[in-house]
Nucleic acid binder design. Structure first.
Lengths: 134, 134
DNA sequence: TGCCTAAGCTTAGGGAACCGAAGTATCCTG
DNA sequence: CAGGATACTTCGGTTCCCTAAGCTTAGGCA
């Protein structure tokens, strides 16, 4: 529901190739680059799954893989210029939808619910940290 | 996260064949039976997708398809005895998890957030009723 | 009565988003 | 400088959902 609305807006804004799974990268990627292992753990998915997502975003020119200067095995997933731009329009779209939601139930209640859920998620994440990355 | 916890508990309770998608049926099915069209609309998915789910639950002995006495085209999807039993254990598992969540953030806040989200969902569903069932 | 459209459902084929197992390259430790 | 651990990739498979195309029954209307 939220996703349908978001992706409709992204298409309007010209981001026709955006897919839902991409958010698993864009939600966690750091400004100076993230390792695949980091991203997979934060998104709670396996390395192969995250690798495929990064492949796709690389094909679309949103991210690029750079060699990690501190570790020859690792790669840093970084946003490209086009990636930063896309992040900006996505963020604006999300804020607009959140505003609509806040209008439906009252800004104070929406804010409170969001806060509660965020806290709950953090508490549960702390209990059961990452997935098994054997 | 919630799903992992729920299905782990269901397996413990002996419901080893339960799958995530089954909730799209069990969440909406009425005590005296529901039509496929109804279920698909409420779960916001297509008829073939819902039909497959019902196939699967039928194979597992959870639901059965009865002829609708008021319309020869339609079928009523009904819970079997085993289905009612499974619903009971699932409901108990869900309540137990919700209690744990309430403990994490406070029962009052959890309750308030749930209420807010429920209201939001209803408001959005009213705006954008069902999916296109051409 | 006999079509003809619509409604209810099913079948067939395919794509997206994951997972587990197994492989390669690099790092680190004794 | 072996041997194990770490970072990542490749391969094959499952789940969950979709669109397109069918088949059957209902209901209106000439």
């Amino acid at each position: 529901m939220f996703q349908e609305e978001l992706f409709a807006r992204l298409v309007e804004a010209g981001l026709t190739d955006a897919r839902v799974a991409h958010t698993h990268v864009t939600a966690y990627i750091k400004a100076d680059g993230s390792r695949l292992t980091e991203l997979a753990a934060q998104a709670r998915m396996t390395l192969p799954a995250m690798s495929e997502l990064v492949d796709d975003l690389q094909r679309l020119g949103i991210v690029e893989r750079r060699r990690d200067p501190t570790d020859g095995r690792a790669k840093l997933i970084c946003l490209t210029d086009a990636g930063w731009e896309a992040m900006g329009t996505a963020r604006r779209a999300i804020l607009a939808i959140e505003e609509e939601y806040a209008d439906q139930v009252g800004a104070d209640r929406f804010e409170a619910a969001a806060q509660t859920l965020d806290e709950l998620l953090r508490a549960l994440s702390a209990e059961q940290p990452r997935r098994d990355t054997r």
